[in-house]
């Protein structure tokens, strides 16, 4: 009875959403979007917001990858808030999964092939993650996927060595240094130009590694922060051994 009711409700939601999305176009040109209104100068631009970003983004930020330009530069404050949410979630998991006397049960050793292979692959995966977040302003990727890749490297170690534990103290040190870097870079921008996260370094030539001002700096900080927080989450969830 309850199941039938739930199915009916789900179908109803499906129909309502589908009716709502009939008029929304798919794959249309961006020139059909509504135009961008600037509330500070009280003017309506002659192009839509994504067009504005795509046209002026390279000059405004110096980054080649526009997604990075939006995440770190145009909406950098938003990203700071999201990283804070991530930090809170990680802290919550750590405090909820805290066990006082960890049960030292005899854990089964894993396969010799798995142990050797994970030892070999660990460095490569960390290197790949670092590559992803260092080149975040040039190629697809950035701090968030790079941090996830680093956390998955630690996950591989957890699977290969059941007794392995990442030191929470060291994780919290790296995480705090990364967070401080983010905030301090923002505050320096506030001191120099009068608004938070101002891009105060020279832009350099586009498509070079040392370009786009503070964007690579902030993205490396985000990568280290996300990597250590996700590793801490995995470690806390792994911690219960009964």
């Amino acid at each position: 009875m309850k199941k039938a009711l739930a199915i009916v409700l789900a179908i109803l939601i499906f129909i309502v959403f589908a009716l709502a999305f009939v008029k929304i176009p798919f794959g249309e040109k961006m020139s059909t979007y509504p135009h961008y209104y600037n509330p500070i100068t009280n003017q309506t631009s002659n192009m839509s917001l994504p067009q504005h970003y795509l046209t002026y983004g390279k000059n405004d930020t110096g980054a080649t990858n526009m997604v990075t330009a939006i995440v770190v530069d145009y909406r950098g404050f938003d990203t700071l808030g999201e990283v804070t949410v991530l930090f809170l979630a990680s802290t919550g998991v750590g405090s909820l999964m805290y066990v006082e006397n960890k049960v030292k049960k005899k854990v089964r050793r894993s396969n010799a092939v798995v142990e050797t292979g994970s030892k070999l692959l660990f460095g490569f995966i960390i290197l790949f993650g670092a590559y992803i977040f260092i080149h975040g302003h040039l190629t697809p990727g950035g701090g968030f996927p790079g941090g996830a890749v680093i956390a998955s490297a630690f996950l591989l170690l957890y699977l290969a060595y059941p007794k392995f534990h990442a030191k929470h103290e060291k994780l919290s040190v790296s995480e705090s240094i990364a967070g401080l870097t983010f905030v301090i870079v923002g505050l320096i921008g506030l001191i120099i130009a009068g608004y938070f996260l101002y891009n105060f370094l020279p832009f350099g030539l586009p498509t070079y590694l040392f370009s786009a001002g503070v964007i690579p700096l902030i993205y490396v900080a985000i990568g280290v922060k996300v990597g250590s927080e996700l590793t801490a989450i995995v470690d806390s969830m792994m911690g219960v051994r009964e």
Binding site: S110, V113, V114, G117, L120
Partner: peptide, 13 residues
């Protein structure tokens, strides 16, 4: 070459 045998041996075990 590095990853396929690792996964297979872990699954078989």
């Amino acid at each position: 070459v590095l990853t396929a045998p690792i996964g297979a041996s872990a699954l078989a075990r």
